[in-house]
Simulated assay, not measured.
Amino acid sequence: MGKELNFFGHVVSPDIRMLYDMEGVLYDTEWFRTAKNTELYYMYRDMYENEKEHEEIKSQHLRYDITIIPPKMLGKEYVKTAGHYHPNVPGASTSYSEIYQVLEGEAEYLFQKMAGETVEDVVLIKAKAGDIVVVPPGYGHITINSSNKTLKMANWVCDDFSSMYHPIKERAGAAYYLLTSGYVPNPKYTKIPPIRYLKPTDASILGLVKGEDMYNLIDDLSKLDFLKNPQLYDEKFSKVLAKEI
C-alpha cells in the first residue's frame, strides 16, 4: 500500500478516508460531482510500543491513535476530517472527551456545541507541533489542515464507544467551512454564533506537559481518567476553553 507507519518497530496499515467518504459534508458540491475518488487522510488506530504496554492500555479502556492529513484542497475548501460527536457516558448526562497533540505540521481544530437545533458555541484552536488540545464534553469537532505541510497528530480516547458522524453529516458539515477566503457559515445551521478563537489547551490543567510526547502518559494512565469519567471533571473542563486569543 505504501502508507504503512512504523511505530516503535510495529508496521501498521491505516484506515483510509477517501474523498467519496466525505460526500455530504463538503462546501464545494459542484467540484465534488466531477472529482475523482482519492485518498484524503490516514488513521492508524490502537498504537503501542510493546505488548506489555498494549495490555495496560486495553485494561484501562483507552486507545492511542495517529492520524496523518496531507495538504490538499477539496475544491474551494481546505482538507478536513469528516467530523464527529461522542455519545454520553452510560448512566451520565456527560459525553466522552478526547485529547489531541500535534506531532508535525499545523492543525485547526473546530469545535461546536449544540443546544437542540441551535448552535450554542463555536471554537477554533490553531495548534502547532507539541501543542495539546482537549475536546471537552458536549462538543463535536473536526480537524482542518490549511497549511502546505503534512499534518501528523495523535490522540488518546476512551475505547468504550463509537463516534457519531451523522449529526454533522445531516447538516452538510460543521457550522463553518474554511475556504481560502476564510471561514464562512454553513447555511444548514440557524443562528450560528461568531467563532471564538482560543489558545491551545494549557496542558498543566490536566497534569500534562506542553511539548512532551503524550504517548509517555503510558507511564501514568491515571492522568487520562478524564477521558473515561468526564462527568467527574467539570471544574477541569471549565478551564479548557477559557483562554481566548
Rank of each mutant, 00 (worst) to 15 (best):
H54P: 06
H54T: 03
Y85H: 04
H86L: 06
I99C: 08
M47W: 03
I66R: 02
N88K: 14
V79W: 00
D65T: 03
T81G: 05
K76F: 04
S95M: 11
P90S: 12
I99W: 04
T81A: 08
R63L: 08
K58A: 09
S59W: 07
E56G: 03
H84A: 07
Y96R: 05
H86W: 12
S97G: 11
M47T: 15
K76A: 15
N88V: 06
E77Y: 04
K80W: 01
E77F: 00
K76T: 10
Y100I: 10
I57P: 02
A92H: 14
H61I: 06
Y96T: 04
H54F: 14
I68G: 00
E55N: 13
Y64M: 06
Y64W: 06
S59V: 01
S95T: 15
M47Y: 09
H54I: 01
G75V: 07
V79D: 05
K80S: 04
P87D: 13
K52L: 15
G83N: 04
G75I: 05
D65H: 01
E49H: 13
E56S: 11
L62K: 02
Q60G: 00
E77S: 06
K58M: 07
G75D: 02
Y48G: 05
N50F: 06
I57A: 00
Y48A: 07
E98V: 07
V89Y: 11
S97P: 03
H61T: 07
G75F: 08
L62T: 03
H84G: 02
E49R: 14
P70H: 03
I69P: 00
H54G: 15
L74W: 00
E53A: 08
N50L: 07
G75W: 03
D65V: 02
L62W: 07
R63S: 11
A82S: 13
N88S: 09
G91H: 08
V89K: 13
M73N: 11
G83Y: 01
D65I: 05
T94I: 15
Y48I: 10
S97L: 11
Q60D: 00
H86P: 05
I68E: 12
I99L: 14
P90Y: 10
H84C: 04
H54N: 15
I69V: 14
K58Y: 01
T94K: 14
P90H: 10
P70Q: 01
M73L: 15
P71E: 02
S95G: 10
H61L: 08
Y78W: 10
Y64N: 08
I68S: 04
E53D: 14
K72L: 11
L62P: 00
K52D: 13
E77N: 04
N88H: 08
N50I: 06
T81C: 08
K52M: 13
Y96N: 07
A82Y: 07
Y78D: 02
V89R: 13
D65W: 01
S59D: 10
P90T: 06
P90Q: 11
E53C: 03
A82E: 12
D65G: 02
H86Y: 12
K52S: 13
R63I: 12
M73T: 06
Y96K: 09
K52W: 11
G75Q: 03
H86G: 12
K72Q: 12
P90I: 08
S59N: 15
P71A: 01
P70G: 04
E51H: 11
E77H: 04
